[in-house]
Design a protein around this nucleic acid. Structure first.
Lengths: 128, 128
DNA sequence: TTTATATTTGCAACAGAGTTGCGTTATGAG
DNA sequence: CTCATAACGCAACTCTGTTGCAAATATAAA
């Protein structure tokens, strides 16, 4: 039996903020926008919880910076594997999920995949 | 005109070490194996140089940790885009380039790609 | 509504990765 | 061999993320 997740103010605001964005957001940007709602450590812990509950997902950018985006297309019950592309614009800095585009990736024999990080950097349509 | 790159002892040893590995290696592991050859800052700077010269490439793991691997299949002259999968084994910790396997990724209209980070975590054949 | 308890929080301190400035060393072109 | 400058070592710093612990609080049960 897993422990119950409590609906605290910090949790509400953080989830609200992430869901209100069209693009992914980093911990530090999030912290700025929270403006004293909670400590930065709390933000880290809330983000961890939300990821575990499959309400948001982590995106590791090409430079290694972690960003967070809401889960839209994925089922929140089962495996929860994010097999879609993340596009990181080097001009405007935004990171966007490309969920409506097909990708075909197959691994060689006897490789078993549990997590995908498919990030592509370049220039987005707005900046081209 | 670009400035000339000098063939220093640190550079030699670092490139040698990376080329001798079948799997990617992190800065810290590299530093351990160098055993006093050079300062850790120098290692960072040499790695940056080698990446710019397209002799090695950076792999960002699913957890955000940066690793380095030799460039094999890519031409060292032109664009130097690494459009291949990196597999990170959650059991033995090794990171390997899957260069001999086809992948099909297309972006939507008006997206221009300059850098790929396609990392998949899971269990490798040796650990399965 | 009140109480009990386990979750969550804030704070302080820490750990690891990576960067910068600067004075010194040493590579390699002439 | 000489010399300009690339590369180095060291110290100090920034940024991201983590941990331990006591205090606060959300939620389920009384």
């Amino acid at each position: 039996m897993s422990k119950t997740s409590r609906n605290t103010i910090a949790r509400q605001k953080i989830l609200e903020l992430i869901n209100s964005k069209k693009t992914a957001i980093s911990h530090s940007s999030l912290q700025e926008e929270l403006e004293g709602v909670c400590d930065r450590v709390t933000t880290y812990r809330v983000l961890e919880r939300l990821v575990n509950e499959s309400l948001i997902h982590r995106i590791v950018n090409v430079n290694g910076v972690v960003n967070y985006a809401p889960c839209q297309t994925c089922s929140h019950k089962e495996q929860h594997i994010h097999q879609h592309i993340h596009f990181s614009c080097i001009s405007c800095g935004t990171i966007r999920c490309i969920t409506d585009h097909p990708i075909a990736i197959t691994l060689p024999e006897n490789y078993s995949a549990t997590e995908y990080q498919l990030t592509i950097a370049g220039t987005c349509p707005e900046c081209l």
